[in-house]
């Protein structure tokens, strides 16, 4: 294969022309592009990820509609307006769990091993992955809101601005949870447990929260979980925004939780990745 073709530069490059690694910013852009690409390259994946919010909206608005008639439910609120903020957050959580799954497959097929023998920073690899899923989340949430507006009679009293801010808040929560799942994936060293753990955590976060039913209606033990769940705070804030009610400090509070969660989990994820194979 070698002697039949034109000469190829094989030996060491003269140091002046050698490539010694691109900057962190460039690395993140390149790696994030790689991480998002499969979603857009394979139309089937894209369609599935867009169908999901549709199904969620349809399912929940039908199954839990009767919730709106219970005495604990806030009066003068249509169930769909109550539901959309919740689904913004549960969808964001599901998307962020994908960050862990993507990382797991990279760890398995050896791509990460190659990056680790190259001048590529651990931080770039992880950040790229989390940014890719942020982009995917933004797409899904936008589609979801449009569907809710067009098909499900979503009519936010808080207006489009309130809805947009609520969506950004959901993305912030999703992004910080993405770091949690990345940390999980790196510490479980890419085993199949990641998926199972991811589903478990996602379920717990989604259901033991103020997402679908008021926290006050829950049994005591679930109420305890719901009150420490970052999703509850985010959803309460987003509900305030979408229903056009005063939000107080809940937006700032949610962002603070996100910041702490991402800071802690990003350090953990980097540690986990660096210790792979040690």
């Amino acid at each position: 294969m070698v002697d039949t073709v034109q000469p190829v530069r094989t030996g060491p490059a003269p140091s002046a022309t050698a490539w010694h690694g691109s900057g962190v910013g460039t690395q993140i852009v390149i790696l994030a592009g790689r991480a998002v690409r499969p979603v857009f390259l394979r139309p089937s994946r894209l369609v599935v990820s867009l169908i999901q919010p549709f199904v969620m909206l349809g399912l929940f608005s039908q199954v839990f509609r009767s919730m709106a008639d219970t005495p604990l439910f806030p009066p003068d609120v249509s169930y769909i307006n109550y539901l959309v903020p919740a689904i913004l957050f549960t969808t964001a959580t599901t998307v962020s769990a994908q960050a862990g799954v993507g990382m797991t497959s990279d760890m398995r097929n050896g791509v990460l091993a190659r990056f680790r023998s190259m001048p590529v920073r651990t931080f770039s690899v992880l950040t790229a992955r989390s940014i890719a899923d942020l982009a995917r989340g933004a797409l899904e949430l936008t589609v979801m809101i449009i569907m809710a507006l067009l098909i499900f009679g979503f009519d936010p009293p808080g207006g489009l601005l309130g809805t947009a801010v609520a969506m950004l808040l959901a993305l912030a929560v999703g992004w910080s949870l993405g770091w949690l799942f990345l940390a999980l994936a790196t510490w479980l060293r890419g085993s199949e447990n990641v998926q199972a753990c991811g589903i478990l955590i996602t379920m717990l976060l989604q259901f033991a929260s103020s997402a679908f039913v008021p926290v006050a209606s829950m049994p005591t033990y679930l109420r305890a979980v719901a009150t420490v769940n970052p999703l509850s705070y985010g959803i309460d804030a987003a509900r305030g925004l979408i229903l056009g009610r005063p939000v107080g400090t809940s937006v700032v509070g949610t962002l603070a939780i996100c910041l702490v969660l991402s800071a802690v989990c990003s350090v953990l994820a980097a540690r986990g990745l660096d210790r792979t194979g040690r």
Binding site: W19, Q27, I30, R37, L41, N109, G110, R114
Partner: peptide, 29 residues
């Protein structure tokens, strides 16, 4: 350094071309 590990470490989803371009870009090309 360059490392060719015992088990192939290339991105299955990408083409051969895209794999090499990715690496060259990460190296600063």
């Amino acid at each position: 350094i360059g490392l060719t590990g015992q088990f192939a470490s290339v991105d299955e989803d990408l083409t051969g071309m895209a794999n090499l371009v990715l690496i060259a870009r990460l190296l600063g090309a």
